[in-house]
Amino acid sequence: MKNEDVPQDLKHLNTFTKELIYATKSDGSYNTLLSSGWNVKYSALELVWGDIYETLRDIKEQVNKDEVSPILFLMKWRLMDIQTLSSYTGFWRWTIKRHFKPNVYKKLSDKILLRYANSFQISLEELKNININDFHF
């Protein structure tokens, strides 16, 4: 990529830092310059986030219909998969899957809930009084 082709597409997403890009001068030798971003990359990121929000809206509906527990919702909200949640909480994967069932979830002790709360970086109180409809996407 030539120096003059380094994109400088500024977006609100990337106000925190400019990134260093390796590009070539007119004689073909490399130097570095700062780029404020690239639209192609932003659109990829936007698509991925759009997909995450869509999944969250689906799960929100399911929670409201009492088909799944808020644990599944919070897991997706924190972008985790079961594997990651399993290593944060220390629960087996099948245990976590059980906790996705609303009936099982309602009977969980504070001790177990606290491990979930800690993994999601919210307080136990917040987890117990969670209102899924407060989350907007």
Partner: peptide, 30 residues
């Protein structure tokens, strides 16, 4: 589409120097 977006993300993510590290390696060879 999602898979392609992920490919682009991995390739151009902050930290690659552009072009999936290929430019940094070219700079190394120079």
């Amino acid at each position: 589409g999602l898979n392609l977006a992920n490919l682009v993300r991995m390739q151009e993510e902050i930290g690659t120097g552009g072009g999936g590290f290929r430019y940094i390696y070219a700079a190394f060879l120079q």
